[in-house]
Design a protein around this nucleic acid. Structure first.
Length: 912
RNA sequence: GCGGGCGUAGCCGAAUUGGCAUAGGCGCCGGACUUAGGAUCCGGUGGGCGUCAGCCCGAUGUGGGUUCGAGUCCCACCGCCCGCACCA
């Protein structure tokens, strides 16, 4: 085997790694564990094992983390680098609906296929730690965490979660009141309701995103701005349902503040901050004339209270029925009635209309303001003015209190509504001369009594203080973030381990009853044929009766039939990798402290698409586990890096339908598919654009190492870049040339010289080591590969390569092209894996060249280059530069005005 | 509208603190090997001039500014990408 034969080399080393367990890493307490080695946890966002398999875009991040892991191992770190599968979820279930094949079988098949493909990339995972979220041994602990959420509450005084048991003790001992009442005074139903109102996992009747196309409800994060499902692009409708919720809002402040603790891309932090959506302001209470009710509003502009000329409730606001008057007050404008005979009918009709429309339809109405008058007025607490109360869908129940004070002069939406309904507009901030329309900028307060003359920033706290003095308001913080809707009506998810008693009481399973396994069903289809107002039936409703009901002590309980969303399994998988076979705990304490110590996962690499879904949910669960003492760091992922996407040409016919890109032919810059002209576009490689490139052909033609090098060479890891199969040959030529530089193609003999390297090559080698080492730390793999090319270009002309250079080069290259690295390392005479060899050191003294080219500038333009000793002094450099003949031409015998000397690189001579 | 980011050669991209702009690759041009090559190997590749060592000039989206010196810092503008968006 003298010529480079990637197929046999790659097969040989993948086999040997598996046989020798090269990348197995022991836990504390296990044989081979070396406590002197500092740990490093390098994690990929694990994939959903789809039926399509991998294309060349998928492994970009995996290759990067693999290189980083291999590099850090060579630097002596104990590296945890695992891989697993996020295997619950819709595609396997959709397939089951269509074919009747159990999702478990589909999942197992896909996991096997993915594992095979990932192994083919030569990735250095510790495969002994591999699991899927669908393994009962794993989801047992997902259910266990759910029970911890159920058994915990967020103590606002402590600012953290605590077990319900401690709350009950306090309540029973009278140290704490339940909603202002002694615990003993509450009956069973009241106690149940009170505790449910505090649990981190609780049931509530809430307006949900019901997606008939998927037969399930979705979290807000899973609904696109067009009001469609992120997965499948089906329409989503709002409807109220009793559902499991997780109280993520309790953690809003910590999820926001702790972003300062982590090393994440600023854009991801910004997206999370934006999603949490903190805003400061005040709650203001508005009494209602002729009613005992009080309307509670949130405003960020308490300073504009004097300008509040009407109020608006969201259509779903709970006070609507109580407030709607029986008859229209005399003089009610016809435009305020919605054409209804009385306010109650108007409100009912409006509410029905609002609920029946999807988000998409609401968008389509171009934000035209609609609403109806409730026939009742509130009292503005600051000036006693009577202001009408409206119902309008531009106010959202899900934000603030679901009710607003409307200040048309200082709010665009309120202005539009006021114009449409003929409501008064009172300016309370003085706009610039000639200003028309709402004014939302800073200015002096006017028409505002005790606030007059104050700027906005001064007026806000003044008004808040006044409200607090008067007892009709308080400073307040509001968040956009809402509680996490946690129920799904699908089959292929973790069953929720809760029983429902005959009186509606909840009985959680005990930890010893886990895992609660999924029952077998004959039909996976969601019930979508139901009437609009019927309760959607979960898929587990078709489970056998002996699964659905449980008799305990003569009481018959019904099992919870909803399952968990796909995000549940991925919320904590990084913890399980630390200790995947532990049967006593979700993760052993010693393993958790060792692998997660300091800053959690040391490097977490994945796509930006998980910016607010997975990463926010995961942080939330982690903080709960932290509060309850199960993990030791406040944040799970210390450093996050988003790899870019791989893009590729895509082709569409005249209808816009995407055509298989690999069947499109190019001729003279025109593209055709089966003879018909097609248009070219560009986008993320994948199934939807039909522009995937399979790695298999590239493996055959060029090999894994070439593909790995190419993907790293394409550009910076964090930017998206186009796939160009044509460009791979450049990297492949490098591999061939390197092989030829070290191995004689005729005899197969090593072309290594035992004599020391000449100073020039030695310096280049040391510079390469220095540069590549720096590139590794910063994940700049594209420039590292470029350094390989440069060093290689210096070797190809030589008959023999000095051993020092060869051994350094092979070790630098090994993380990128591990099979080639191993083969060359072995041929260089080493019997142990290059993966365990020490990373080469560089000598800064040797890396520096003895002589450097000093640039001589005149007025900032390069006019001469002089070879000088690297250690040249300032005076010497100055006189050398001034002595240059080329400079003399610009000096014209005169004196330079100024000479800037930066030895040994540059002298800049300033002349008039 | 709000927030984050990006504009360098024919293309992908490099330039760590302001200091030789364009490393490295593709493509292209020329040559070698060859029946042939779209494989492989060697050389060239911003423009202009020149007898191959050379000389001159231009250029980092646009326009200003700071500086001896700006791709890099500051201001304004243009274009592109991403996220959020009736969030009170």
């Amino acid at each position: 085997m003298n010529a480079y034969d990637h197929q046999s080399i790659e097969a040989k080393w993948q086999r040997r790694w598996a046989e020798q367990g090269t990348f197995r890493v022991p836990n504390p307490g296990e044989p081979g564990f070396d406590p002197s080695r500092p740990k490093l946890y390098v994690l990929d966002m694990f994939p959903y094992p789809s039926g399509e398999g991998l294309h060349v875009g998928h492994p970009l991040g995996y290759i990067a983390t693999d290189i980083y892991s291999r590099y850090q191992r060579m630097r002596g770190r104990s590296v945890l680098h695992p891989m697993g599968f996020d295997a619950f979820g819709l595609p396997a279930e959709q397939y089951a609906v269509e074919t009747g094949v159990h999702p478990r079988l589909t999942t197992e098949r896909n996991v096997a296929n993915f594992t095979r493909q990932l192994r083919a990339f030569g990735l250095s995972y510790d495969w002994d730690r591999c699991f899927a979220t669908t393994d009962p041994g794993y989801y047992r602990w997902t259910q266990w965490i759910f029970l911890r959420l159920f058994h915990s509450w967020f103590d606002p005084d402590a600012g953290r979660a605590r077990p319900m048991a401690t709350l009950l003790e306090d309540l029973e001992a009278g140290r704490r009141l339940a909603g202002g009442r002694p615990w003993a005074d509450l009956d069973a139903a009241e106690r149940h309701a009170y505790l449910n109102g505090l649990r981190l996992a609780y049931i509530d009747e809430v307006p949900v995103n019901w997606c008939p196309g998927l037969g399930t409800v979705l979290a807000n994060e899973e609904v696109t701005r067009e009001g469609r499902s992120e997965r499948g692009d089906f329409p989503v409708y709002r409807r109220p349902l009793r559902q499991w919720m997780l109280r993520i809002t309790a953690y809003a402040e910590r999820l926001l503040a702790d972003l300062d603790l982590v090393d994440w891309p600023e854009s991801i932090k910004a997206m999370q901050r934006n999603w949490i959506g903190r805003s400061e302001g005040a709650r203001v209470l508005f009494p209602v004339e002729g009613s005992p009710e009080v309307i509670d509003v949130f405003t960020t502009r308490p300073d504009t209270l004097f300008g509040a000329t009407y109020m608006v409730l969201a259509p779903e606001h709970p006070l609507v029925d109580a407030l709607a008057a029986e008859v229209w007050p005399p003089g009610t404008p016809i435009g305020w009635t919605g054409g209804a005979a009385d306010p109650r009918q108007a409100a009912a009709a409006y509410r029905l209309r609002a609920s029946g429309r999807s988000e998409l339809e609401r968008q389509a109405e171009t934000r035209e303001k609609t609403g109806v008058f409730l026939g009742r007025v509130a009292v503005n607490p600051v000036n006693g003015a009577s202001i009408p109360i409206f119902l309008a869908d531009y106010v959202l129940m899900g934000y603030g209190t679901g009710a607003i004070m409307a200040v048309p002069a200082e709010d665009e939406r309120d202005w539009e509504f006021a114009e449409a309904f003929g409501l008064p507009i009172v300016r309370t901030v003085q706009p610039p001369e000639g200003w028309e329309g709402p004014y939302t900028e800073d200015g002096p307060a006017i028409n505002s009594g005790f606030l007059n003359g104050l700027r906005v920033a001064e007026a806000k706290p003044r008004m808040t203080a006044w409200l607090e003095e008067q007892g009709c308001g308080t400073a307040a913080v509001s968040y956009k973030l809402r509680d996490w809707l946690f129920s799904r009506q699908r089959y292929w998810g973790e069953p929720i381990p809760i029983l429902h008693g005959p009186g509606g009481e909840l009985r959680p399973l005990g930890d010893d009853e886990l895992p609660l396994l999924l029952p077998e069903v004959e039909d996976y289809r969601p019930r979508t044929d139901l009437a609009d107002d019927a309760e959607p039936e979960p898929a587990l409703g078709r489970a056998p009766d002996d699964w659905k009901t449980v008799a305990l002590n003569g009481v018959v309980y019904r099992r919870e039939l909803n399952t968990m969303p796909q995000w549940a399994g991925s919320c904590w998988y990084y913890l399980r990798f630390c200790d995947p076979h532990n049967r006593e705990a979700l993760v052993g304490a010693a393993a958790e402290r060792y692998w997660m110590g300091e800053r959690g996962v040391d490097l977490y690499v994945g796509g930006v698409e998980h910016a607010v879904l997975h990463l926010l949910y995961s942080r939330f669960w982690h903080k709960v586990l932290y509060d309850l003492g199960h993990v030791s760091t406040p944040e799970p992922f210390g450093r996050l890096f988003n790899q870019g996407y791989i893009l590729a040409d895509a082709f569409q016919d005249e209808r816009g339908v995407y055509l298989p890109a690999d069947e499109v032919e190019e001729q003279d810059g025109r593209f055709t598919y089966r003879g018909r002209p097609v248009t070219r576009s560009f986008g993320k490689m994948g199934k939807s654009l039909k522009n995937s490139v399979s790695p298999d052909e590239i493996f055959v033609e060029y090999g894994v190492d070439t593909l790995r090098l190419y993907e790293m060479f394409m550009g910076p890891l964090d930017s998206s870049k186009p796939w160009t199969t044509r460009d791979i040959v450049g990297v492949h030529r490098f591999v061939l040339r390197l092989w030829r530089a070290l191995i004689d193609p005729g005899t197969g003999a090593l072309r290594v010289d035992e004599a020391p390297a000449d100073p020039e090559l030695l310096a280049l080698t040391h510079r390469t080591i220095a540069a590549v080492t720096g590139d590794m730390e910063d994940l700049r793999f594209n420039t590292a590969v470029a350094r390989f090319f440069e060093l290689n270009n210096a070797l190809v002309a030589r008959e023999r390569v000095p051993r020092f250079v060869a051994e350094a080069f092979v070790r630098l290259l090994a993380p990128f092209a591990p099979h080639l690295g191993e083969e060359l390392w072995e041929r260089l005479g080493h019997s142990t894996s290059v993966a365990l060899a020490p990373w080469p050191d560089f000598d800064p003294g040797l890396a520096a060249e003895d002589t450097v080219t000093m640039v001589v500038q005149v007025n900032g333009k390069v006019r001469d280059r002089i070879l000088v000793p690297a250690g040249i002094g300032e005076e010497e450099a100055r006189s050398l530069a001034l002595g240059s003949e080329k400079v003399a031409a610009y000096l014209k015998g005169g004196e330079p005005r100024r000479v800037v000397v930066r030895p040994p690189n540059l002298v800049n001579i300033v002349v008039p």
